[in-house]
């Protein structure tokens, strides 16, 4: 067993370096992306994510580097062998095309001392949970990965993107009940949406947990991921991608510069207040989440200029953090319909 991972890692690095030198955009995916982000080390294969248009060229350069191509029957990936090690080149994970945006969201990390783009943790969980099906739904594999990567993930986005999958829902429910990840907005991690009669809840649902969305840290323990040696990229990063609290009164809003080392949920709360108070945005309904790799803002504004202002205002407050501005502009004007009210 000891040798297998080492062989896999060597192949992983060879493919990554070859693709990098050929300037083919890619991201490390699959269980090695999870490993790079603190998860258990895989023993099977190596997965890379590429755009479909880049796959033929990737196969060419990898063959030039001595790898052996295989043309599998599946239409969502192709494979190459490095000796005995199988490397998947995936262009349509769970039926969705690998896009420029997805690759742009990936982050350069040191993987066993080689720097390479690693798939974004939120994208990773969307794919992993959507890949669960009736024959492949072993939560025993998924839960340790959630434990390892939970504070790097925007769980609200994962919930949204996987809403149609009952298997994903089950995995997220288990993770929520174990208080590994925040409960959906407004729901208790203990189970029933609202504090009902005692019989409605599980025996473990003590009053202390009712109505308190888990922040993904604290009592659950083991919240801090140890990144692989040489990475360092996520160490000390604030955790929890939970939505901002409605408010916080730590008084930092009056300072010119926020203390960006404070826990993510306070920072998210402060940033949300700043967006409400700054005259350039003045939008009270935006949702701010602080993930380990970016500040994520969602919601709707009336004008494109106000959407842009979100970037400007946040860049002033947290200049060293990437901003993921997912705010939309409400322009859709449907024709009026008439309702009779009486």
């Amino acid at each position: 067993m000891d040798d297998a991972p080492r062989g896999l890692r060597e192949s992983l690095k060879r493919v990554a370096v070859t693709l990098k030198e050929a300037q083919i955009p890619f991201a490390l995916g699959g269980s090695y992306a999870c490993w790079a982000r603190g998860g258990p080390e895989p023993v099977h294969d190596v997965d890379f994510m590429l755009r479909e248009t880049d796959v033929p060229r990737a196969v060419d350069v990898l063959c030039d580097a001595g790898l052996r191509p295989v043309d599998p029957p599946e239409d969502w990936l192709t494979k190459v062998y490095d000796g005995d090690v199988l490397v998947d080149l995936i262009h349509h994970p769970v039926g969705r095309a690998v896009t420029d945006e997805m690759l742009a969201r990936s982050r350069d990390m040191s993987v066993d001392s080689v720097r390479m783009p690693v798939l974004d943790a939120t994208d990773w969980f969307e794919m992993t949970l959507l890949a669960l099906d009736e024959r492949y739904c072993d939560l025993g594999r998924v839960i340790p990965m959630i434990r390892a990567m939970r504070e790097q993930v925007d769980w609200t986005q994962v919930r949204r993107a996987t809403a149609e999958s009952p298997f994903a829902e089950a995995a997220l429910l288990v993770a929520t009940r174990l208080q590994l990840i925040p409960a959906p907005a407004g729901l208790s991690p203990a189970g029933p949406p609202f504090a009902g009669p005692p019989s409605a809840g599980p025996p473990s649902a003590g009053p202390s947990s009712v109505g308190l969305p888990s922040s993904g840290r604290g009592s659950a323990g083991e919240a801090v991921t140890t990144p692989p040696a040489g990475s360092g990229a996520v160490t000390g990063a604030p955790e929890s991608a939970s939505d901002s609290a409605f408010g916080s009164d730590s008084g930092l809003a009056t300072a010119g510069q926020l203390d960006v080392t404070e826990p993510a949920e306070y920072l998210a709360g402060e940033l949300r207040e700043r967006l409400a108070e700054d005259p350039r945005v003045a939008e009270l309904g935006l949702e701010v989440a602080v993930a380990s790799d970016a500040v994520i803002v969602r919601g709707e504004v009336a004008l494109e200029t106000r959407r842009t202002a979100v970037d400007i205002v946040l860049a002033e407050i947290v200049p060293d953090r990437p901003i993921r501005n997912q705010v939309t502009v409400s322009q859709q004007e449907f024709p009026p319909t008439v309702e009779s009210v009486s």
Binding site: G285, E300, A302, S330, Q332, E333, F334, P335, P336, T337, V338, E339, S340, V341, S342
Partner: peptide, 22 residues
Amino acid sequence: VPVRNVARPVIGRAFALYEVGT
């Protein structure tokens, strides 16, 4: 009494239309 939230992002249009009375 019927209540309608006519916030523009909710109705998704410039205005909602209601007929009241007969």
